[in-house]
Amino acid sequence: MVIGERKPFEEILKTLEGHKKILVLGCGGCVTVCLTGGDDAVRVLSSQLKMSRDKDGNPLEIIEKTVERQCDPEYVEEIHDIVPDVEAVLSLACGAGVQYVAERYAKTPAYPALDTTFVGGSVKEGYYVERCQTCGQCKLAYTGGICPIARCSKSLLNGPCGGSTGGKCEISPEVDCAWQLIIDRLRYLDQMDRYEELADIADWSKNRDGGPRKMIREDFQR
């Protein structure tokens, strides 16, 4: 899932300066799972905003709503009755969601309440780690299911480097050396021959370096 972290409260307050009535819009997708953008997060942030502005004698009227997903036009459409009544939309979605709201409602500013941080998963409830960097060319078949792009600090394709010590990365004793994990896993799978093969130079144009990407399923095009 896409992991988002709430922006500092002060920063959110600053973006809302001058507005008297806003829509705080949650997203029922990834950010609900990582506890930062769902219905509960909408209520908590709205309550904080109301209190903070009330305290300063500059009340803020808030409409709270959470849609299924903000990265889908059909769900963004659900707020079309509300948007004309508000001065701005504060979105608790990832960057994609905020942009969908901004594109659909061109006359109303859409502000992000989250910093979209990474694609990852949960270790346990409330604890999330990065696992994928959306490089566009998945190499997991050759690396024992452990991603060298996302998990090696240098994104090395033929690792490890000299900074690997005792299974840990030189950047921090808390960070596992991804290549140590890869080698251990390949050995366990009896696939060390895959480690012996040199990985080709990556085609980074399939990563963000090639500009904005798209994916089209022809059978769904009408």
């Binding site: 409260f9 002060e10 908590v44 904080q48 209190m51 903070s52 305290k55």
Partner: peptide, 8 residues
């Protein structure tokens, strides 16, 4: 922490 952010 949340109420401290608000200023309470």
């Amino acid at each position: 922490r949340l109420i401290a952010e608000v200023g309470l």
